[in-house]
Amino acid sequence: MYKWLLDIYGNGSLLDSFTQFPNYGSDEGRIIVDYNLSEHPFYYFTSSLLNSVEQESEALDKAKELLVIFNGVCYLLNLTFTKFIPGSIRPNIYYKQKSDIAFYAQFRSHIDILMKGRHEHDNYHKVLRLMGRSHKNIQWMDLYKIYEILKKKLGEQKLAQITSKKNWNKFTGTANFSIEAGDEARHAIPNKDIKDTMPIDEARKLIKTACQNWVEEAFNIKINNKLYFPEYISLDFDNI
């Protein structure tokens, strides 16, 4: 059982979908629901990594950090179209009464693989943090940081298999100097000679695709470009 429960907010249908399937989570990061407090459900983020924490303030800080990682994992896996927002934290009054971790552990999910995979790769952990804190609204500065990690991990040859060198140059030129990037550009003075710039939505999709290629190869998984939630929230995640 989980010791601490972090209130989270987001799209209700999306939150509910994460509580319906045991494989939509990991013992290191999971969304659970409580219908007992009122007629409206309450959603919580929790993790077995919080079980050793005694102080509420420390539990809150650690839970928020883990939720950022969880948001990053879900974004990479095309599971969410918006990030989950943290609220307050509370102790779980049912802690130690029964064990649900063993039940969930039998479902080896992509979320579980990627949550635990960060312990093996420091750079991968950083990518999840950068993606998780902004989700689909990630800005140029963080996009470029991820690009630097990808370039080091994959090399230019593999990056060229994802898109052309010309496109990568367009990305770096936009991120470094252009008016397109505005205050998010890596350098304060824009280079007005740069005419061929990349829209940020295209840059986000490019970096996300490159990260997904890296993750698929590193962890031997296949990420779906389109997932079918219940019809009322079915979306084409390839466009996010």
Rank of each mutant, 00 (worst) to 15 (best):
L14E: 10
L66T: 03
F177I: 15
D193N: 14
A210K: 07
S48L: 10
Y232C: 12
H40Y: 06
A59P: 01
I149R: 15
N224G: 10
F84D: 01
L235C: 10
A175I: 12
H40F: 04
Y2A: 07
E58R: 02
A160V: 03
F219D: 08
F237H: 14
L49E: 06
P230E: 11
I32P: 09
S57E: 14
D193A: 14
L206V: 08
I233N: 05
L5C: 09
A181T: 00
S52H: 13
Y228T: 08
F229D: 09
A181Y: 01
W168S: 00
K96V: 11
K3L: 13
H119W: 10
I89E: 11
A218N: 08
A188I: 15
T209G: 06
W140G: 11
K62N: 00
A210Q: 04
E28Y: 04
G29D: 03
E231Y: 03
H125A: 05
Q55R: 13
D236L: 02
I162F: 02
F21E: 15
R118M: 03
N224E: 10
Q139R: 15
R90T: 14
D236N: 14
K165Q: 11
L50Q: 08
L60R: 14
D142I: 03
I138H: 04
T174M: 07
R30T: 08
I194V: 11
D7P: 08
E180T: 13
D236W: 03
E28Q: 07
I146V: 12
E58V: 01
F70R: 10
H110R: 03
I31E: 07
